[in-house]
């Protein structure tokens, strides 16, 4: 599974360029929320998407399943925006220790 998702690390996640991870995350959001969402790297996962703590947990577990990774709790605590999440996903997939 891991190989099929191999991706180069992106130095910055703030540019307007298309980011496949962001698109994949948007797809998982839609699956969890049941409706389409517009997200940018600046989108605040709790404030802008209206997820409560259980919603966040379900969403994080869906992301973990999709990428076949586990995001440790201290890393989840650091994630506020979609950009933070992209960075966490990319680091965990490239084997950078948490």
């Amino acid at each position: 599974m891991r190989e099929t998702h191999q991706l180069a690390l992106v130095a910055s996640n703030n540019g307007p360029e298309r980011n496949p991870v962001r698109e994949e995350i948007a797809a998982v959001f839609e699956q969890v929320l049941g409706h389409a969402v517009q997200i940018t790297d600046q989108t605040d996962i709790v404030e802008d998407l209206g997820l409560d703590s259980l919603g966040v947990m379900n969403f994080v577990m869906a992301i973990e399943d999709f990428y076949d990774i586990s995001i440790p709790l201290d890393r989840i605590a650091q994630v506020q925006t979609v950009g933070d999440l992209i960075q966490a996903v990319e680091q965990l997939r490239s084997g950078v220790p948490a």
């Binding site: 586990s70 440790p72 709790l73």
Partner: peptide, 21 residues
Amino acid sequence: AEVIRFRHNSPDDLYKRLRRL
């Protein structure tokens, strides 16, 4: 320690997460 949460009462999810480690 690094804390990883698995789905409630799911040995499969637990196994998957241990395998990832």
